[in-house]
């Protein structure tokens, strides 16, 4: 196989434009999905059965169905509903493929993130919580001072791999006209037929983004560990 340099020169700027969109979508996914997922995890551990059940139902629904279906319901499905098209604020949002993709990514990662933090919150030794209660901590202080920091430290390595998943899931945006990396790659594949070269280049972009992401989390983890030292 000879490397087609002309093809690479043509593809690189397009894929780089796509990479910006991928990064944008992934940043929204992590930035919004992380706090929402944390909230959902707390909801699922709430003493109120109804609330916990609702949270479990949400997580089960989004983890049990493919994101592609979720995305098509949001983009093609909701566009059929008259109320959505006639309400300017709603239509402003759902008209835009990028917004729909961002919403799908957030809804999806929230479910998975809640699972990660639920496990981490439950893994906190009962003794630590009892100790905090014994010194007279209020529930809110207990949450912000003890439970969340401990859960965060436990969950961070697992969450890093969820962040990578978010980066990969943004590729589905290409199926609703968003030209992120995979969308550009697909367009290039159908135009130039240089399948392997395009795949290699697109993969390279993803790997660089993933590595940057992992690096960021490693830094965060080290900071956390430092904060934990007495």
């Amino acid at each position: 196989m000879t490397l087609d340099l002309e093809l690479i020169a043509m593809a690189l700027p397009l894929l780089a434009t796509g990479a910006l969109v991928t990064i944008k979508l992934a940043a929204v996914g992590v930035g919004v999905g992380l706090p929402l997922g944390l909230g959902l995890a707390l909801l699922r551990l709430a003493p109120n059965r109804l609330l916990a059940g609702l949270g479990d139902g949400y997580a089960g629904l989004f983890r049990g169905t493919p994101m592609l279906v979720q995305l098509f319901i949001l983009y093609y499905g909701l566009a059929e509903v008259p109320v959505i098209r006639q309400t300017p604020a709603l239509w402003w949002f759902f008209r835009d493929a990028l917004f729909c993709a961002g919403l799908a990514v957030v809804l999806n990662t929230t479910a998975y993130t809640s699972e990660i933090f639920r496990t981490a919150l439950r893994a906190i030794p009962q003794g630590q919580i009892e100790a905090a209660l014994a010194v007279g901590m209020r529930p809110w202080t207990l949450l912000t001072r003890i439970r969340l920091p401990l859960a965060f430290r436990n969950a961070l390595p697992v969450y890093a791999s969820e962040a990578i998943t978010v980066v990969k899931e943004t590729s589905l945006a290409s199926t609703i006209t968003v030209l992120e990396i995979t969308g550009q790659a697909k367009r290039l594949m159908s135009q130039t037929f240089g399948i392997l070269e395009i795949f290699a280049l697109a993969s390279l972009f993803y790997l660089v983004i993933n590595l940057a992401c992992l690096g960021a989390f490693a830094v965060l983890e080290r900071r956390q560990a430092r904060g934990m030292r007495p």
């Binding site: 990969k168 590729s171 995979t182 594949m189 399948i195 392997l196 795949f199 993803y206 993933n210």
Partner: peptide, 18 residues
């Protein structure tokens, strides 16, 4: 590492086109 690092959609395009 490669396959877990790139989107499944991209892998599927590679296999189906190539």
């Amino acid at each position: 590492g490669l396959v877990r690092g790139v989107p499944g959609l991209l892998v599927i395009y590679l296999i189906f086109f190539g």
